[in-house]
Design a binder for these strands. Sequence first.
DNA 1: GTTCCGCATGAATCGATAG
DNA 2: ACTATCGATTCATGCGGAA
Lengths: 289, 289
Amino acid sequence: MNKPKLYLGDCKDVLKQMPDNSVDLIFTSPPYADQRKTTYGGITPDKYVEWFLPISKQLLRVLKPEGTFILNIKEKVVQGERSTYVLELIIEMRKQGWLWTEEFIWHKKNCYPGKWPNRFRDAWERLLQFNKNRNFNMYQEAVMIPMGDWAQNRLRNLSETDKIRDISKTISGFGKNISHWLKRENAYPTNVLHLATECNNKKHSAVFPECLPEWFIKLFTQEGDVVLDPFMGSGTTCIVTQRMGRKSIGIEILPEYFKMVQESFSPKYSVLPLAWDIERQTLQVTKIK
Amino acid sequence: MNKPKLYLGDCKDVLKQMPDNSVDLIFTSPPYADQRKTTYGGITPDKYVEWFLPISKQLLRVLKPEGTFILNIKEKVVQGERSTYVLELIIEMRKQGWLWTEEFIWHKKNCYPGKWPNRFRDAWERLLQFNKNRNFNMYQEAVMIPMGDWAQNRLRNLSETDKIRDISKTISGFGKNISHWLKRENAYPTNVLHLATECNNKKHSAVFPECLPEWFIKLFTQEGDVVLDPFMGSGTTCIVTQRMGRKSIGIEILPEYFKMVQESFSPKYSVLPLAWDIERQTLQVTKIK
DNA sequence: GTTCCGCATGAATCGATAG
DNA sequence: ACTATCGATTCATGCGGAA
């Protein structure tokens, strides 16, 4: 089994050590802009683009021509307004040479609760797709889920869902015929992903669920390809990458996080054998059949 | 019953005839770039911002200080890339004085079918919320939805008689858990809207379903308030507005669309002749002076 | 083994309070 | 005045213990 390459340091510096055109997929969720100036590593919204551009320049260099860069990000509210630094970042990255190919939406089914007089809960994040070339590797069939478990579960619940339709209509005015779109739901994915913030493992709280990098790794890489996460954090991307038989490179600036990820990959902790996952996948395939 | 005010002409010009601070909600879906080429001089993506800014300037003027502007838009793919004109528009509108308060996502559950080698189906559109003021009118209770937990897991087990029985249990001191969820039947929605592209519309295939303007009209206006659609098109916003007891103003540049909307209102509302509108515009110009 | 219930827990946001 | 900190608000989800 491959071992992940883990680097401790500022990714802006570490990336410079990496060769050109060597990475198939970059999947990362950088620290979002923060208002608190005293926080370690906190980047204020007005400095965000300036801070990120040198990094994205290196990412552009190390990415293979057919590779893809997926950037998970969401601007926060500052004084009642959404910050525009993400919009500015997209525009500036294009000037750097990136192609802004697509914007996926991650619909967070269980977003953070709260109530405010002028705002609803924020239930989505951006997954910005950047490429070097118009022709990039994309393995669509890997994520085209056939009508199996998932769809059957939805249909099984249909009658129950239908029962509440009338009540929903009365209360909210949202009462359209739910069965209509449930029946028409097909298995081809769109650019909207519906995931709860936690999917499988509730070991330690990650920024995003494992399903999220898993989906993009399936879509944009094959076995043996190289996946880079320059903001490794708790290592979700690396762990998923390794489990999926891809080669993982992770960079993390905070020693606490770095050591944690390192230990999770050390022999005594790697209780999660690859065979288990393969067996599980096989079982799932059998189920669908 | 109120009559909708329908204007035939370029909204950039027509809007100039309207008084300041007179509209509670602007809800519109302007022609996207590269569409309706013969209209508005054929807007290409690189000219889009330049074209829209004079219009948004007028919209800023006619909107009440506590009003809201909802802009339904989505950038098209041009040569394999998402165009950036929407991003640039947001940034430029802020310079005009607009506050970019929020970005809602319209998740199109039954989006246009198709398959491409390097792209999935586009299943979402932006609903950009702009305001003049940090304090704007918002009637959140009008759009509350049944709580997921309550609707999907609890209610199905209870018939109406069961509910009553359990309530009496509560009163007598037993079923504490029941009273718990009865109090929490409704939840506030998020900034992700799940609507099919067709809801109730029978005849004309509109750009958006009636549910879409309906939701925002409920959220940002009360009965008797004024709703403006400067790009009326087939008139979905106007029709919904009138039905909901709000006052509708619609502007359309294409005579075919204008007449179509006019006719849809004709037996019930006896649409005013164009001459009346022109005369009224003149009067309003005098007023502004 | 199921199913059900209670409970902790979030890439949140606002408004009030304190320095 | 301006900025950092804190409490209140809120709800989908997963986990653990109980029936």
